[in-house]
Design a protein around this nucleic acid. Structure first.
Lengths: 192, 192
DNA sequence: AAATAGACTTAAACTAGTTTAAGAAAGGGG
DNA sequence: CCCCTTTCTTAAACTAGTTTAAGTCTATTT
C-alpha cells in the first residue's frame, strides 16, 4: 500500500509517531479507480473520507433538469468527502467520481473515530484540514458573487493551473458555473 | 458577562466540565456593538474568533469597483471570523460589521490555543464547528452554481427565515449575488 | 481506411440579470 | 411634528451569459 503520501500530508500539520502511523495503516484502505468510476452516488450515504494519492476526482450534483454541477475537484494530496453524510449516515446529494485513473486511500467513519480516540493529534490535524477547506470554499463563494465568468476563469487558471490542463473543458465550465460554449468564447477572447 | 449561551453552544457538541468553563471564562471577552460597528477591516489581521450572543453580523468584501459583497451572516449562537487571517496573522481581505446592535464573545488566537492545550475537547468541538461551516459553504457554492436568482432567494427564505425579516434588502441582495433592484422584481413576482 | 463517438468551437437568437434614473415609503432624530 | 436620510420599488435600455444548432477536430474502434 502506498501510505507514504498520506503520512507526509498529515505529518506536515503535526509530525506523527510510529505508533500513530502504524495505527493509521490498519485503518486505511487503498483503492484504485478507473476513469469515470464512482465512489459515491446520490441517495447513498458517504462512507469514506477519501485522500487522493494520485489522479483527480470531482464532486458534483445533478440538478432537477439533469444538469451536472461540479462543486470541487481533489487532486494529489487533497481530501474529498461529503462530510455531512459521512457523519450523519444520511443519504448524500452528491456524486464523487474519478476524472482520471486514480489511487486513493479511504477511511470509514468508525475507523476515523478510532483514530481520534487513539490520539487527539488526529483531532487537531482534521480540525485544521476542515478549516483550510472552509477558507477555500469561502474564496469560492466570494469569486462566484463578485467576479464575472471571465475573471473567474482567469482566477481558476492561476489557482489550479495544474488541473486546468488535465481537466476536460466541460468540467471546468461546470465548475465555473457557465456553459462549455461560453467558456470557449472566453478562451478565444483571452487567447488561451 | 453573558457566558451561558457560549457554554450551552459548546456543551451541545461535548458537555464541558466546570474547570473547562472556568478556563473558558478567563479567555473570553464580551463586547457590545452598535449597528454598523466594525470588528474587522480589510488590511488588518483578524484577531478574534467571534461568537454571536445576540444581534447579527455580516462578513463582506469590497471589490475593485467599490461594491460590497456579503459572504455570510452570523446571528445568535453562530461563529464569525476570517480563519485564514486569524491563524496566519496576515492582513484580511474581509470586513466584519454588526448589522444590528449586537453582543459578542471574542477569543484571541493565543487564548484559543491555550484552550486547545487545556483540553483536547476544544479541538474536537472546533473541528466539528469547522466541518459544519464547510457543509454550509458547500451548499452555498452549490446554490450559486445551480440555481437561478429566484430559486436562490426562495432557498434563502426557507433556510434563514428569521434573518430575512431582520436584514435590509440590500444585504440580502448582496448575499444572493444580485442587485437590490432585481430582488425587488423577484419579490413582486413571488408575492412575498 | 472507414466509422463512430467524444471533446471543442462558432454563431445567431434569446433571456436572466444589470444599470440608470426617478419616485414612493418608511423610519429616526432633533 | 416635520425634515432628512435611508430603504424599497418601478420601469426602460442594456449586457453578460444561455440556448440551440451546426460544424470541426481528434481519438478510438472496426
Amino acid at each position: 500500500m502506498t501510505l507514504q503520501p498520506l503520512i507526509d500530508h498529515l505529518g506536515s500539520y503535526i509530525p506523527l509517531k510510529q505508533t500513530e502511523t502504524q495505527f493509521l495503516e490498519e485503518k486505511v484502505t487503498e483503492r484504485r479507480l478507473k476513469r469515470k468510476q464512482h465512489i459515491l452516488q446520490e441517495g447513498f450515504p458517504c462512507r469514506h473520507y477519501t485522500f487522493v494519492v494520485s489522479g483527480c476526482l470531482r464532486m458534483f450534483v445533478i440538478d432537477v433538469q439533469g444538469i451536472e454541477h461540479n462543486i470541487l475537484f481533489a487532486a494529489e494530496n487533497d481530501w474529498i468527502t461529503d462530510i455531512s453524510s459521512f457523519h450523519s449516515g444520511k443519504p448524500s446529494r452528491f456524486f464523487i467520481e474519478a476524472v482520471e485513473p486514480s489511487v486513493v486511500l479511504q477511511i470509514e467513519p468508525y475507523d476515523l473515530y478510532a483514530l481520534y480516540t487513539h490520539s487527539y493529534k488526529f483531532d487537531k490535524i482534521f480540525k485544521v484540514i476542515a478549516e483550510n477547506k472552509c477558507v477555500a470554499l469561502q474564496n469560492r463563494v466570494l469569486q462566484m458573487i463578485s467576479l464575472t465568468a471571465k475573471e473567474r476563469y482567469l482566477a481558476f487558471l492561476e489557482e489550479y493551473h495544474h488541473l486546468s490542463v488535465r481537466l476536460p473543458n466541460v468540467h471546468i465550465a461546470s465548475y465555473l458555473g457557465i456553459t462549455p460554449e461560453f467558456l470557449s468564447k472566453i478562451r478565444k477572447e483571452t487567447a488561451y
